[in-house]
C-alpha cells in the first residue's frame, strides 16, 4: 500500500512507472471500488495538486485543457462555453455541483464510459488526448482512445495530461443534448453531440455527430449529407437511429434508445447551427430544450 501526492507531472509519471494508479477527484475510482467494479488500487498517486494539469491555454490554433480541469470550470469558462459550447453543455450535466467540482475532464475521458457526457462533444470537436509517460508523449484521437466500456488504449504508465482541441472554423459551433429522467445525479439515457459549420448561403457546409450511451463506446455517425439545417438535422436523426447499437437495461429498452438518440441528434444539429449563426443558446442546451423533469 502507498499513497503519494504529486505536485508535478514528472512526479506522477515516476509513480505510474512503478505501478501506482492516478486519482484526481476519486468520484469514479472510490465509487467503483465500493461497487466491487474494481478494488481500490494498492498504490495511489494523487494528481489533483499538479498545477500543470489545471491550465486552459488558448491560442489562435486551439485550446489545451489540462486533464485536471474540473467540469464546473468547463461549464463556466467564457471561451469554452462560447467557442466549444458542446463541451460545456456536457460538463454542465455531469452529476451535481459537488460532482462537477471534483470530477475532471481527464478523469471523464480515461474512465471511458460510453455514457460519459463530455465524450461525444470531444469526438465531434476532433479532440485529442495527450498521453505522457517517462517514455515520451503522444496524442491520440478519441476514436482510437476508447476501445470498449471502461476500456482505453493507453498504457498503464501513461497519464492523460491534457485534451487538445483545434479552434473551430468561423460560423461553426457545437451542442450536446442528452435524454435524462431527472435533472441531477443523472446519467445519459442516450445523448448526441453535433458540430456544425454554416456557409454564407445559410446551408450546412460541414457536420459531425457523435452518440452517447448507444454502443460500447462513444461512436461517430457517418454519411450525413449536407444541405439546409433542417435537411441535415433530419439526416443526422435518421443516421443516428440507424447506426446506434443500443442495449436494453434498467434505464431504457434498446428500441427506445434507438428512437430517442435520433431525436437528440436532430436537436443537437439544430442547436449547434443556431450557435454557429451567433444566436445565444445557453449552456447547457438541455435546460433550454426543456429536457428532464422540473427540479
Amino acid at each position: 500500500m502507498s499513497f503519494t501526492i504529486a505536485t508535478t507531472i514528472d512526479e506522477a509519471l515516476q509513480a505510474l512507472a512503478t505501478g501506482a494508479r492516478p486519482v484526481a477527484g476519486g468520484s469514479d475510482l472510490v465509487v467503483g471500488a465500493r461497487h466491487g467494479k474494481a478494488p481500490l488500487p494498492e498504490h495511489l498517486v494523487a494528481i489533483d495538486r499538479i498545477s500543470e494539469l489545471q491550465c486552459i491555454d488558448v491560442t489562435d490554433l486551439g485550446v489545451c485543457i489540462g486533464a485536471g480541469v474540473n467540469h464546473h470550470i468547463i461549464e463556466h469558462h467564457p471561451l469554452l462555453s462560447n467557442a466549444f459550447a458542446g463541451l460545456s453543455d456536457g460538463s454542465a450535466l455531469v452529476g451535481s455541483p459537488s460532482t462537477r467540482n471534483v470530477g475532471t475532464l481527464g478523469g471523464n475521458v480515461m474512465n471511458s464510459s460510453p455514457a460519459m457526457d463530455t465524450g461525444s462533444p470531444l469526438m465531434v470537436l476532433g479532440a485529442e488526448a495527450e498521453l505522457r509517460s517517462l517514455r515520451g508523449s503522444r496524442r491520440v484521437g478519441m476514436a482510437d482512445l476508447w476501445t470498449g466500456p471502461g476500456r482505453h488504449s493507453a498504457e498503464a504508465d501513461e497519464l492523460c495530461v491534457a485534451i487538445h482541441i483545434a479552434m473551430p472554423a468561423s460560423r461553426s459551433n457545437s451542442a450536446y443534448l442528452r435524454l435524462e429522467y431527472r435533472r441531477s445525479m443523472e446519467i445519459a439515457v442516450v445523448g448526441a453531440a453535433a458540430a456544425v459549420t454554416i456557409a454564407d448561403d445559410g446551408s450546412v457546409s460541414a457536420v459531425r455527430v457523435a452518440l452517447t450511451a448507444v454502443a460500447p463506446t462513444i461512436i461517430e455517425v457517418t454519411g450525413i449529407g449536407l444541405g439546409s439545417v433542417a435537411e441535415v438535422a433530419a439526416a443526422a436523426a435518421a443516421a443516428a437511429s440507424e447506426q446506434a447499437r443500443p442495449i436494453s437495461d434498467v434505464r431504457a429498452s434498446d428500441k427506445y434508445r434507438r428512437h430517442t438518440v435520433g431525436v437528440m441528434a436532430r436537436r443537437a444539429v439544430e442547436a449547434a447551427a443556431r450557435r454557429a449563426l451567433g444566436e445565444p443558446v445557453s449552456v447547457p442546451v438541455n435546460r433550454a430544450a426543456g429536457i428532464g423533469a422540473a427540479s
Binding site: S27, V31, N101, M185
Partner: peptide
C-alpha cells in the same frame, strides 16, 4: 454512493461528497 448529498462537506469552500472522497 455519491447520489444523495447527506455526506456533503466543503473542501476549501467547495462542496464535495465525502462518502466518495479519500
Amino acid at each position: 454512493d455519491c447520489e444523495c448529498g447527506a455526506c456533503m462537506v466543503l473542501l476549501d469552500g467547495q462542496p464535495v461528497n465525502s462518502c466518495s472522497f479519500l
